[in-house]
Design a protein around this nucleic acid. Structure first.
Lengths: 252, 252
DNA sequence: TTCATCCCTGTACGGCGTAGACAGATGTTA
DNA sequence: TAACATCTGTCTACGCCGTACAGGGATGAA
């Protein structure tokens, strides 16, 4: 069950909407923390060890406070994640340059922000978070598409598709980096290990999967770059977005 | 640290490679379970309550066995998830029809399989699982692209991009359905609630985010379909894949 | 000075993945 | 048949997790 907090409460938190009561006029000790500090520290904590994520206990410890204290500021961990998620969107570029290239560049920058905060990627799925910063990012893409004279229906589909590509790309790159960091095995070494093991377990691989062999073998351009997954993924992303935007005619 | 099991062990498990010893020739009680049964039951369990996922304890209970028993068959939960993930790829269509439409139809069917097993979607990210069924699915797409005379480099990028779209679409639809089920609030009602709350908290929304308003308001075609998120997402997916494949010239 | 209010804490519950020691069943061998 | 090596499943326990609940102490208004 767990009963999520009311949507209104979450939205109010996201937009930091005070009820304009301004100054405190009531008894009781004044709070030692505030939402901004909690969120900032949570982001820092999550950034420092992306694999573990945040735990309420660890965050409280870092803030010099008992875990339960946090629940005075934030209704639950899900909401905290939403706040963290929205806050990193402040780092994303808002303005999109002219034309397709503008969008393509912007998309790449957005991915880079996600890569600085890999824990945020899974949060992005599902219903929109509806926070102010995510909203601004969304807005800037919407405006850019409107400038291209697309109809709203097409534009809306494009926005969704583009965000799928952004998140997918970011997810893939960050997973690769994380696996690399945890296992100490870099991408090339991992691939070697994997293909050796596969060859042993599935001796007739090449005959059973000729298409795969073709795809992988002939496109191998490692270049000795230890982060080539990121490079290739980014290139694919740019190509993909270019195709999507180029193909979506203003008339259609 | 948790130290993942050796890649070779995992691959051997995925391909159910026996060391060809065939019959048991050693003392000790014979196993009451086998990997297939565990995986099948785990998939069934996960399907039954997609929000909770599998826990080793719950799975053991369903198999009439102690949690620790499972570790005699599977090195850890991550590997179990990999096995489950690969197993559902057996349901996916292998053959891709001719031309772009063939791929587009196939993509849609793949999404539908993921939607029957929503827990599998997050597993898909990161390094490939390298199991036999996933491999076959991958292979069929690779072959279809080779038939279109793309060079391997382009094809490889396309495969990645298409899978991003598949997973993104599946993820979005399943998250929407799940939220709907958990909260009892359907998509339309949720949106009403959200926009009411937003209007209250951010009275100047329309002036601050005109692009968003344009995008959302003018493309609203609800039709009273309570699962319209799925319908729209699928349409966007088809459009996206069509644009990608249509734009990727054989020459390029 | 009284008192209502609110922040923070302590304790506790029920979950999780899984490490480690061990009991019992089993097939082979003497 | 008896001894033994081997393997399976169990029990217990550790250290995590999110968070419900009750209450202590500080605080400002009356």
């Amino acid at each position: 069950m767990s009963s999520a907090p009311s949507l209104k409460r979450v939205i109010a938190l996201l937009w930091r909407s005070q009820v304009s009561g301004e100054e405190r006029r009531h008894p009781g000790p004044r709070p030692r923390l505030d939402v901004d500090r909690i969120v900032d520290e949570a982001v820092a904590l999550a950034d420092e060890n992306p694999s573990a994520g945040v735990s309420m206990r660890a965050l409280a410890g870092r803030l010099g406070v008992t875990p339960m204290t946090l629940y005075g500021y934030v209704p639950d961990k899900g909401t905290l994640l939403a706040l963290m998620y929205d806050s990193i969107h402040a780092e994303m570029p808002r303005v999109v340059g002219e034309g397709i290239s503008g969008v393509v560049d912007w998309v790449e920058e957005v991915v880079e922000v996600y890569l600085r905060h890999p824990w945020a990627i899974p949060v992005a799925y599902g219903r929109p978070i509806l926070g102010p910063y995510e909203q601004e990012v969304f807005e800037s893409l919407a405006v850019a598409l409107r400038r291209r004279d697309l109809d709203a229906q097409t534009a809306r589909g494009l926005v969704g598709t583009i965000f799928h590509l952004i998140r997918g790309t970011a997810h893939a790159i960050s997973a690769s980096r994380q696996a690399q960091e945890e296992s100490g095995v870099d991408e090339r070494a991992w691939w070697n290990e994997a293909s050796t093991a596969l060859a042993e377990v599935v001796p007739d691989f090449a005959e059973r999967f000729p298409g795969t062999v073709w795809l992988v073998a002939e496109s191998e351009t490692d270049d000795g770059d230890h982060d080539y997954v990121a490079r290739h993924s980014m290139t694919n992303l740019r190509t993909g977005v270019r195709l999507l935007l180029g193909g979506a005619a203003p008339g259609s």
